[in-house]
């Protein structure tokens, strides 16, 4: 049952991809998307590692943790989006102010 390692590596890849986008892009909507991709990568690693033993059932504890995590991440996303809209309302920009660039 080694295909689960494929998914574990995919999870690591998604995490790094999201981290890259989080650093590179300035627009806050992209940063929110990037954080979501990163969290998906973490969930993928957790679930893939929980079901790698052949024969015995996949471990339900990480599954439960991931379900909890998905719901938490959607609520965090909602809060982040409202904060972004507030910033947009206050400054007219979709990015955080960057002092080093001024």
């Amino acid at each position: 049952m080694s295909y689960v390692y494929l998914y574990a590596l995919l999870g690591v890849g998604l995490f790094v991809l999201g981290l890259n986008a989080l650093i590179v892009h300035a627009h806050l909507m992209r940063k929110i998307l990037a954080v979501n991709v990163m969290s998906t990568g973490v969930f993928l690693v957790l679930v893939a590692l929980s079901s790698r033993n052949e024969g015995i059932l996949p471990d339900p504890v990480p599954h439960a943790m991931v379900i909890t995590g998905i719901v938490v991440s959607v609520s965090a996303t909602a809060l982040a989006l409202i904060l972004m809209l507030k910033l947009n309302r206050a400054t007219g920009k979709n990015e955080l102010p960057d002092r080093s660039r001024d």
Partner: peptide, 8 residues
């Protein structure tokens, strides 16, 4: 589903 996690 491929990872045997239908709940998720």
């Amino acid at each position: 589903v491929r990872l045997n996690a239908p709940d998720i």
